[in-house]
Design a protein around this nucleic acid. Structure first.
Lengths: 229, 229
DNA sequence: ATATAACGTGTAAAAGTTACACTAAGTAAT
DNA sequence: ATTACTTAGTGTAACTTTTACACGTTATAT
């Protein structure tokens, strides 16, 4: 709410935590900076907001520039505006996280027109990050830990067709604890949001598991309920 | 994360939803605008962020200017940055909610140096609001509905000493449903975060209830647990 | 003394959560 | 073809939590 128009202008930016799930590990896309400040440091991808785009559009653009993907699940989670957070001036940053499907047929490789390098890094092996990105990352991770219990965001990390074991792995790696297989399946199936595809995994060693698909139509029931594992 | 410094500057503002609980009702502090745009409309209190203050400081300042209070429970909950949200230009607004103790001895009256008028308004009788404040308010209310189940924010709306019935009223009015008295007490006491003061209400008609105080030391146990009513 | 209105308490049924271990099925190697 | 291996897939009983439900007690006001 504004009484008088601008006395003070600030620059604002978007920072994104792009989560991916690959080979049983939770990964995050980091870039290696090519410019001062923090040249050669790892950082979360981000950019300035352009005049005629909304915050959400800006976040989607950043993601698209890095990965070529559209229509990815993204959520704004916090805005960081401490005075000293950027050495070159007052920059306020709106932070988003996104959940990407790395798995499936083609492994997703970031396109680094954007920075020197961009890599998928295991969240357990996180390097030091530029600016206050460490704090941003921690808060984002806490958010998805919490949100995965209420909303079906785990599916966003998996290919369209997935097995119950894969789904359980996503929960385990995000929540940071082992879950009981029988209890997990019982509970997950009880929500009636998984469609059994009557189809088996292909090309795996050993016994193939049944494939499921997340059924968006039935999702309403689940929304907002606490899921306990 | 910034590659090149500012191509585009915007104005940042803070909007605050100040919640209060009074006479069994959930109230919100609204101001009547004194200037264009939206002159004479109701709006959430807010202001521009000043150059050398953080977002949190700015929110506290707005609250202080309106109410004279400090050290109030405030949380940032979302940032609104759609292109057309302000008729006079690109203004991005970081939204906070706060929980105030209206009750107790002295009723809290807003000081309106700030705008034409400022009033505590029952959230059930909300007028039309300026800008996108309707949307901001709805999202804020949803947030506290959710957060009251996880965190002891209900206490923030009550005087330091309160009765279980008052506490139940806060839950009921925020969640929008009646709760069972026995179950509520059983559950609330089971958390061991309420200290029985061995003291009774004074100056009430009819039987006086026992007063309790929220025990911050024991609060850790409660944090993050789902509370179901 | 009496009427009033809110206070404060317990239990049993139902639902949900937890802990726990083996057989089935498909692959790979010999 | 047999065997060894690895993951898939399944049920039950104990325990915990949640829900539904009603009445005697106590302080105040008249």
């Amino acid at each position: 709410m504004i009484e008088v128009l601008p006395q003070f202008n600030s620059t604002f930016s978007i920072d994104c935590i792009l989560f991916g799930f690959d080979e049983g590990e939770l990964k995050v896309l980091l870039i290696e900076r090519n410019e001062e400040p923090f040249k050669d440091w790892w950082a979360l991808p981000g950019n300035l907001v352009i005049e005629n785009e909304s915050l959400d559009q800006s976040a989607s653009r950043i993601l698209h520039e890095l990965t070529g993907l559209d229509n990815v699940y993204m959520e704004q989670f916090h805005t960081f505006g401490d005075i000293g957070r950027h050495p070159q001036g007052r920059i306020i940053s709106v932070a988003y996280y996104a959940m990407l499907r790395l798995g499936g047929d083609k492994a997703l490789k970031p396109v680094s027109t954007y920075a020197k390098q961009a890599y998928w890094i295991n969240v357990k092996e996180l390097p030091k990050l530029a600016f206050d990105h460490q704090k941003i990352f921690s808060q984002g991770l806490e958010k998805i830990k919490r949100r995965i219990k209420h909303q079906p965001i785990a599916f966003e990390l998996l290919p369209e067709k997935f097995t119950l074991t894969q789904l359980q792995n996503v929960y385990e790696v995000i929540l940071g604890k082992k879950l009981d297989k029988r209890n997990f399946r019982k509970k997950m199936l009880s929500f009636n949001v998984l469609k059994d595809l009557n189809e088996k995994q292909k090309g795996v060693s050993f016994r193939a598991a049944t494939l499921y698909r997340f059924d968006k139509r039935k999702y309403g029931k689940l929304f907002g309920k606490e899921i306990t594992f």
